[in-house]
Amino acid sequence: DHWHVHIDGERIRLDGASEEFIRTLEELIRRGTDARELKEIIKEYLR
């Protein structure tokens, strides 16, 4: 599956992301997590 998110107007691909990770991201977004912080979390995950 190819997922991607838009954060700060930037399109970030989440290739190979699990549904669990996507749900976690959605939860963080709902909580109002800062965009820079979200991008860091995604970069760490994709390593």
Rank of each mutant, 00 (worst) to 15 (best):
Asp1Thr: 08
Asp1Cys: 05
His4Glu: 12
His4Leu: 06
His4Cys: 06
Val5His: 02
Val5Met: 05
Val5Gln: 03
His6Phe: 04
Ile7Val: 10
Ile7Met: 06
Asp8Val: 03
Asp8Cys: 05
Gly9Trp: 03
Gly9Cys: 04
Glu10Asn: 05
Glu10His: 12
Glu10Ser: 05
Glu10Tyr: 02
Arg11Ile: 15
Arg13Gln: 14
Arg13Asp: 15
Leu14Trp: 02
Asp15Thr: 12
Asp15Gln: 11
Asp15Trp: 10
Asp15Ala: 08
Asp15Gly: 07
Asp15Val: 13
Gly16Cys: 05
Gly16Lys: 07
Gly16Met: 07
Ala17Arg: 02
Ser18Glu: 08
Ser18His: 12
Glu19Val: 11
Glu19Ser: 11
Glu19Ala: 14
Glu20Met: 10
Arg23Trp: 06
Arg23Thr: 07
Arg23Val: 10
Arg23Asp: 06
Thr24Ser: 11
Thr24Ile: 11
Thr24Ala: 13
Thr24Asn: 13
Leu25Glu: 00
Leu25Ala: 01
Leu25Phe: 05
Leu28Gly: 02
Leu28Gln: 05
Leu28Thr: 03
Leu28Asn: 03
Ile29Leu: 09
Ile29Asn: 02
Arg30Tyr: 07
Arg31Phe: 10
Arg31Asn: 13
Gly32Asp: 04
Gly32Ile: 04
Gly32Cys: 03
Thr33Cys: 06
Thr33His: 08
Thr33Phe: 04
Asp34Met: 07
Asp34Tyr: 01
Asp34Val: 07
Asp34Leu: 08
Asp34Phe: 02
Ala35Ile: 11
Ala35Pro: 15
Ala35Met: 09
Ala35Thr: 13
Arg36Tyr: 14
Arg36Trp: 14
Glu37Leu: 14
Glu37Ile: 15
Leu38Ala: 02
Leu38His: 00
Leu38Val: 09
Leu38Asn: 00
Leu38Asp: 00
Lys39Tyr: 11
Lys39Met: 12
Lys39Asn: 07
Lys39Pro: 01
Lys39Cys: 02
Glu40His: 11
Ile41Gln: 04
Ile41Trp: 09
Ile41Lys: 09
Ile41Cys: 04
Ile41Glu: 01
Lys43Ile: 12
Lys43Tyr: 14
Lys43Ala: 15
Glu44His: 09
Glu44Arg: 09
Glu44Gly: 07
Glu44Trp: 03
Glu44Val: 03
Glu44Gln: 10
Tyr45Trp: 11
Tyr45Ser: 11
Leu46Phe: 13
Arg47Phe: 09
Arg47Tyr: 09
Arg47Glu: 15
Arg47Ile: 14
